[in-house]
Simulated scan of single mutants.
Amino acid sequence: MKIALIGYGQMGQLIHQFAQRRGHEVLTIIDPKHSSATDSKITPEALLGVNVAFDFSHPGVVLDNLRYFLSLKNAPNLLVGTTGWYTHLGEIERSVARANIGFLWSSNFSIGVNLYFEIVKKAAKLINKYNEYDIWGTELHHAQKADSPSGTAKILEEILLQNIERKTKVVDNRLDRKIEPYEIHFSSTRGGAVNFSHTIGLDSEADTITLTHAARNRDGYALGAVQAAEWLVGKCGFFKMEDFLGFEI
Rank of each mutant, 00 (worst) to 15 (best):
A4S: 13
A4Y: 05
L5R: 03
G7M: 01
Q17L: 12
R22H: 09
H24S: 07
T28Y: 03
S35Y: 10
A37S: 13
A37M: 09
I42K: 02
T43K: 12
L47H: 12
N51G: 10
A53T: 05
L70E: 01
L72T: 03
K73S: 13
K73G: 09
G81I: 05
T82G: 06
T82I: 08
W85Y: 15
L89T: 12
E93L: 03
L104A: 06
L104I: 15
W105G: 00
F109L: 12
I111V: 15
I111G: 02
V113R: 01
L115C: 07
F117L: 07
E118R: 14
E118L: 10
E118H: 07
I119Q: 12
N128Q: 09
G137K: 01
G137Q: 11
T138I: 06
E139R: 10
Q144N: 15
S148W: 01
P149T: 11
S150H: 06
I155W: 00
L161M: 14
Q162T: 11
E165L: 12
V170F: 08
V171H: 01
Y182R: 11
E183G: 07
F186V: 07
S187E: 05
S188G: 14
F196I: 04
L202F: 15
D203L: 08
S204R: 14
S204V: 10
D207K: 09
D207E: 15
I209Y: 13
A222N: 07
F239S: 02
I249H: 06
I249Y: 13
